[in-house]
Design a protein around this nucleic acid. Sequence first.
DNA 1: CTCTAAACGAGACGGTACGTCCAGTCTTCGG
DNA 2: CCGAAGACTGGACGTACCGTCTCGTTTAGAG
Lengths: 207, 207, 207, 207
Amino acid sequence: MTQGAGSDHRSRPRRRGSELTAAIYDAVLAELATSGYGELTMDAIAKRAGTGKASLYRRWPTRTELVMDAVYATLPGEQDLPDTGSLRDDIVCTFTSIAAGLSGPVGAALRGLRGEALIDPTVAERVRDYSRSAALHTLRRIVDRAAGRGEIDASKLSPLRLAAGPAIMRNHFLFNDMEDFDIVSLVDEVIMPLLTHPTGSLQVRDI
Amino acid sequence: MTQGAGSDHRSRPRRRGSELTAAIYDAVLAELATSGYGELTMDAIAKRAGTGKASLYRRWPTRTELVMDAVYATLPGEQDLPDTGSLRDDIVCTFTSIAAGLSGPVGAALRGLRGEALIDPTVAERVRDYSRSAALHTLRRIVDRAAGRGEIDASKLSPLRLAAGPAIMRNHFLFNDMEDFDIVSLVDEVIMPLLTHPTGSLQVRDI
Amino acid sequence: MTQGAGSDHRSRPRRRGSELTAAIYDAVLAELATSGYGELTMDAIAKRAGTGKASLYRRWPTRTELVMDAVYATLPGEQDLPDTGSLRDDIVCTFTSIAAGLSGPVGAALRGLRGEALIDPTVAERVRDYSRSAALHTLRRIVDRAAGRGEIDASKLSPLRLAAGPAIMRNHFLFNDMEDFDIVSLVDEVIMPLLTHPTGSLQVRDI
Amino acid sequence: MTQGAGSDHRSRPRRRGSELTAAIYDAVLAELATSGYGELTMDAIAKRAGTGKASLYRRWPTRTELVMDAVYATLPGEQDLPDTGSLRDDIVCTFTSIAAGLSGPVGAALRGLRGEALIDPTVAERVRDYSRSAALHTLRRIVDRAAGRGEIDASKLSPLRLAAGPAIMRNHFLFNDMEDFDIVSLVDEVIMPLLTHPTGSLQVRDI
DNA sequence: CTCTAAACGAGACGGTACGTCCAGTCTTCGG
DNA sequence: CCGAAGACTGGACGTACCGTCTCGTTTAGAG
């Protein structure tokens, strides 16, 4: 009694499964592009995708997970490593292409997800599971390959040294405009020096 | 005689100005401590502070600004620089004390503010105005002093090199647990090398 | 975070208290008139009244109670008894005016309320508290007055005999069209005979 | 080999036709008994009956019709008239057995159906088609038989007079507790007097 | 016995209304 | 005027059902 009516006058055939999922992903990205992450609502996504909220909640328990899936579906899988033969050029190449991917709605989404993770610890876990620092991950592989060529001594590198470049780039991505970021300088002034600097030369810790 | 229903029987004289402001700050921090940033609501703050929402909105246009004021009111002003005579030890000392300040409700608030800034560009501006990277700022002053002592050549340092250490620490603060973070390693493996590494020695850019 | 925005561009001054309540009652009756009880939704009422659902739920826990208040607010209080000097004419007069009141949106509402009471026992209680059978109640008073005049012997009347007329009328109101109902016949063929028939003349029970 | 995902491992042979219909009726009554009419949902009925909603909608266009069929399937067909030789005793007998049938889930269903009819005029029509006032219907046949015996003069009876008894009983059934209802008093104080009272003795209408 | 069409079971789909929560604004008193 | 209290408009939330649909499986009946 007195519940929803629900006559169905829409475009048959009804979408299901992956077809519908894809349409929802599109809707999420479209909403992100036009309104931004802060204005992203489940109602709007459902309306834009031409479906009902139930179909969203049936697949994703929270908005966060929906956005994660929508975003990561657009990201390339395992990056093809560039292979210039030079460690430095490989890094420049990789970081540049990653930076390119962080613009537009995808970048907005990633920022938003990170934002929610900062606000809600519950979300933080889920985001962490999903997110790999693409930059750090790829850098490690490039460095390993360079070590194979004998270009550097990877065994001497600490995780912290590898993390420095990606950390700076991520900070810039998150809190500044990605436009005014000079990747070449980052590589030459920070990343390469840390990769080649002799370990322990300044190990004054034990003095 | 017949007193109105919602009459006000509070005996304490009504608070005004800074007294009230301080009470509100306390309420904000208390809410942050018990519920976290995600559950922080204006209603709850007002109720806890024993005031009305209007008194909040009269002072702060948004929740974000209220939290910023509440948090920065608890932070120390210009940090007294430590002076150990050694660049490295000054840095270790400073970073350690900054890290200590980032725990508890204040840390939660800062994370939350950063989070909202990531979600809403409008908020981002306001947050940026307020927030200075304490670590970066202080590091610069310490380095300048060391340059005065002749310990290093500050003129050769690029902003990127200075930024690396604070960037790593911030990343860790934002997205990992601050507990398992080794400041000494950061200083010895990343910051110090970058400060002392000869500039341009690896400038293969022009090759 | 990410909760409703809520900018306020509406007609000030804002309505409160009884003014708002009256506007809501109007909205309920208007919705009843245009859509019927079955299509009555809280959303529609709120929209029509130009308020939010919260203001409805703040006042009434359920739609049923809202409708009851809205309807009973339009009903006249204690009916002025007609006084023709004749028992029969008083009854005809009263029943006719009651029947008149049961048409239009008010009638629809009463039917709807009764309907919900039949479906949900919880509602039934609330409805029972509100509703008095106006017909039965008034009939009793008229009969008592006639007894005062010596027209009949009220002490001999059983409640069941009084109930017959109102029961038939109510049944007709609830399950048939009120238009084709002949009150005069009801009075002459059922009510008056029962009021004047000697009690027990047919007490064959004990035979 | 590779079996489809949603394969069907149920061992029991699939039910069809009247076997399935009977199972659905059972489910409806079971739901009514455990949850009441208000909580009756098509989903729950389908689940309880171990079938799909499509099988319900294939048979009944609305929940109302389903419930009507389920309920009327349990009701006895044409009542065997009692035959005590006395009009009064026949009536008492009949009304008593009808009242007995109105308890339990069937009574709840009938109340619920009536309720929905009051809320939705569309439903009202369907319900009216189905429902015959068993009491009124049977009463008429008993009275006719008594007239045949010469016990009363049926030609003088108006429909309104016949309706009074059933109306009172129905009202009691719908809006009060059937337990505290005295059928004997109803018969002796209302029904019998109206059946035997000389018509028109009070016809003051034309005066 | 095989083949086909229909019915069956399960549940996803597009949709409406629910009742709750909070944002930000406004009103009403009392000091 | 400002403080305290809280009601107001509005919008999104996540849930429950609706009635329809699609999908694979089972069954009955025809050839």
